[in-house]
Design a protein around this nucleic acid. Structure first.
Length: 424
RNA sequence: GUGGGCGUGGCGAAGCGGUCAACGCACCGGAUUGUGGCUCCGGCACUCGUGGGUUCGAAUCCCAUCGCUCACCCCA
């Protein structure tokens, strides 16, 4: 074991896996652009207050999961634990609201949370996500949800379910909170320890508690979904109408609450059963108060975020894993001291015209080098020995057909350009 | 933060108190002259995460510690 190990909860993405990562990132970007979302890149760290305000002081993320540090100027900074707060901060700071009424963004990148790692949960993990700011039209909710659905399908996740709920607005939420507290008060002492404290901080979460969920009183407690104000109820039903219209199936889950404080109205979660205990693969919701909370105008917003690591796990479970092929077009084989210089020159010439080429650097024998060429999946071997060097020629061997020709060194590039291009 | 499982060569994995720590894969070399994928032969852990203890003797038992992993809270 090495003396230096990567920090807990981080991962090295090795070349083989990097191919899949890149494929996912490329496909995600392309899909987002198809929906006319534009990429936005915000800093990986922000002033701590951005997350305290943006994510919410009562959330686990802020209370116990942030990577917070003081820089040399004594400023408190935090590695971003999620993407929305930073995007909204940028939106407000750069005054992007001046441009158009509705703006659509996407992002891709690492996030950091100080958690104990397990399957599908890491301290540095990666998310792709979208944010739509400036419209509260339920068509936008449906578009964002539909985009999540589309992305998962496109990525090869064949089965998953979509849970949908509405968590209301500050008006109906406050009203529901009163009802709920009154309702639960008599059984407060029967609740689990966590729910005792949720009682004051975030009673909505009690409904979602895995321990108390089965408690008869809790199970039949008033749901926010049933206590929505007129506006929220209409929003919720219209979102469903559009989803129906788009042929996207979902289940209403009245106990589903999103973990972040900023959510209002629409909340949704895509879950996949085979990736471990943490089955949420992509989730999001509407956050109508957030922009104003971060100092901007009173604009509505909605978005989602998905975990790349969880997507990769799900792809694996669905047999969609992609392995990178590591092939080279040409392998330059130099024999002996005398061949090294012309070989280096030819290797460089081949690469200059875009032919993927490699060579051996350890001065091994022909046999060993051919073995390497074979293993690299090379189509051609350019062989340079004493005879060839003396004659200004090279032997070019087609590894598949075993045919070998000897040509002038000056013709090599044009000869191979032609051969290699024939494959495409 | 809490609980379970596990830590043997690059990887997978046997051994679970007593000769030199199996084996497979990978890797390296060889099977006569400068020609590959198969086969055959050979090489590759003074050491079993780390530290301490028990014992005549420990990879094997005990304790601690670190790490990995799964699960809980919560979450992508």
């Amino acid at each position: 074991m090495s003396e230096f190990a990567k920090p807990r909860g981080t991962a090295d993405i090795l070349p083989e896996q990097a191919a899949e990562w890149r494929a996912i990132e490329d496909a995600a970007r392309q899909l987002f652009e198809t929906y006319h979302y534009r990429e936005i890149r915000t800093p990986i760290f922000e002033h701590t207050e951005v997350f305290q305000r943006g994510v919410g002081d009562t959330t686990d993320i802020v209370q116990k999961e942030m990577y917070t540090f003081l820089d040399r100027g004594e400023r408190s900074l935090t590695l971003r634990p999620e993407g929305t707060a930073g995007v909204v901060r940028a939106f407000v700071e750069e005054k992007l609201y001046g441009e158009m009424n509705t703006q659509k963004f996407y992002y891709l990148g690492p996030m950091f949370r100080y958690e104990k790692p397990q399957a599908g949960r890491y301290r540095q993990f990666h998310q792709y996500g979208v944010e739509v700011i400036g419209s509260s039209d339920p068509r936008v909710d449906a578009e964002v949800i539909g985009l999540g659905d589309h992305l998962l399908r496109q990525m090869g996740v064949k089965s998953f379910s979509l849970l949908l709920n509405s968590v209301g607005c500050p008006v109906c939420r406050a009203r529901h909170r009163e009802q709920l507290l009154a309702y639960l008060q008599p059984v407060r002492s029967e609740l689990c320890k966590d729910c005792q404290s949720r009682f004051d901080k975030n009673p909505l979460r009690i409904l979602d508690c895995k321990i108390d969920r089965d408690h008869p009183v809790v199970a039949s407690a008033p749901k926010i979904t049933d206590a929505l104000c007129e506006d929220c109820a209409r929003q919720f039903s219209q979102v469903q109408t559009y989803l129906d219209e788009m042929g996207i199936s979902y289940e209403i889950d009245k106990t589903m609450v999103r973990g972040l404080d900023y959510y209002t109205q629409t909340a949704f979660e895509f879950v996949e059963g085979s990736i471990g205990a943490v089955s949420t693969i992509l989730a999001g919701g509407r956050y109508n108060g957030l922009i104003q909370m971060l100092g901007g105008p009173d604009l509505p917003g909605i978005g989602f975020a998905g975990g790349v690591e969880r997507l990769i796990l799900a792809r694996a479970a669905h047999g969609a894993t992609q392995v990178g092929q590591d092939r080279v077009d040409v392998f330059v084989l130099a024999l002996g001291e005398i061949a090294t210089k012309p070989a280096a020159r030819l290797l460089h010439e081949l690469r200059s015209v875009g032919i993927k080429a490699d060579s051996d650097y350890s001065g091994r024998k022909v046999k060993a080098q051919l073995k390497v060429a074979d293993r690299l999946g090379a189509r051609y071997v350019v062989l340079l020995g004493e005879d060839e060097v003396a004659a200004g020629q090279v032997a070019v061997r087609n590894l598949a057909t075993r045919e070998q020709v000897t040509i002038e060194q000056s013709e090599l590039v044009s000869y191979l350009s032609e051969q290699v291009s024939l494959r495409f």
